[in-house]
Amino acid sequence: MSSDDLNIMLRSFRRRLAVIRVLRIALIVLFLLAFIWADQLDEPDDKHMMFLVFAAAVLTWILLVIGSTQTGREVQTASVLLNIGKLDDAEVWLHKAMGRFSLSARGKVIACQQLAALFMRREQYAEVVLICRTLLRRRLCRLHSVWINTRLLLADSLLYMDRVYEAYQAVRPMYDVPLTLADRMKLLPIQLRYELAADQAASAVVALKEKIEIAELLDAPRAALVHALLAEACRRRNMRPQYNFLIERARLYYDLDKLAERYPILTPVVADTNTIVSDLPEGHA
């Protein structure tokens, strides 16, 4: 998908959300007016019309729920395809979910956030930034997890693009709200990358013990990343024993060379590790 296509799609997405807002209000007003009108009629027509209006309201609600459920299923399918690496198929399902007529904005917003995640997997960071900024123009107070994930994706992409201050602006509001453990686990690697990129190693080494406790809950590559980032911070602060401990732990989790390819900020740490003569036996980390 080209940038122009993405821009067109996002404009259409914003238009649809605006239409959904207007239609919802219009429907509520319409049914209220219908009830009032039916009440003004003579008997027995008023009772019949009231019943018809009530039945129409229930039917409309059922249709909305069905539409919303279908959108939810499409998003779920896309999510599964994304997880197993079938990005093109996932994109098709997300387009379907975002294009389907529905009076539920929630499904479309989640689909849009998943689209950002898909572009992240493709390492198309400019597109991720565009999608995330479109999403953050909306009030996402009822979709807290979408708000969190969107900010994290935005900050992550901006860091890859070396737009460090903008990455800080993306995550800054997250520190004003309560974060779950899962949110803190997602935030920690991004926070450390920002602090090192912004030359704030002193902040990175604050509360080391707590940060390591969170890192231990992550999967191997991310646990290694956090340990290596903390090691780099300790290296800059001349905290040698902590540095040695963290780097040895990082190596136990994952190959640091692979990490350094993706995160060049780790190059000094990996270079330092590779110059150490290893007298560990074969097969040791």
Binding site: E216, L217, L218, D219, A220, A223, L252, Y253, Y254, G283, A285
Partner: peptide, 17 residues
């Protein structure tokens, strides 16, 4: 199968390895 197991633990068990 120590070596094979070690790789499996390292790749998939994170800290529990």
């Amino acid at each position: 199968r120590a070596q094979q197991r070690r790789e499996l633990f390292r790749n998939h068990l994170s800290t529990r390895a």
